[in-house]
Amino acid sequence: MIRVCPLADLARGEAKRLDLDPAVAIFHTEDGEVLAIDDTCTHQDASLADGWLEGCEVECPLHSSKFDLRTGQVDAPPAKRPVRTHQVTITDGDIYLTIASEQPNAPAGVDVEAGP
């Protein structure tokens, strides 16, 4: 379990990118939920923490793929594969993260030196 930051440091509507390997995005929704997914869009390497949070969904800033923050599933293309979700707990006002054990879905070109 990783201690992320005090809950008070992540305002509602905001997101935070954790520079882990692979990176994780933590969102504090307008409704007060704190949810974590892989930060990298599975379509092309972009930070979902830089994307647009709407309800319980994030839209990738690059090509508008949408992911459900609760399930990691793709709600809108062009992404096809889901991101992982990670377990978040709040203890004594701090956010803690437990990284999922399954393999992440990295976009093409990430972790591999490749071009078109």
Binding site: Q44, D50, L62
Partner: peptide, 27 residues
């Protein structure tokens, strides 16, 4: 709606002109 986005490589700028996203930017 939210940002100016280049139609070539999708560099994306907010309404104050700051670069907010680009492919591989986090790298």
């Amino acid at each position: 709606k939210r940002a100016f986005q280049c139609a070539y490589h999708a560099w994306t700028y907010d309404l104050d002109g700051a670069l907010i996203a680009a492919p591989n930017l986090t790298k």
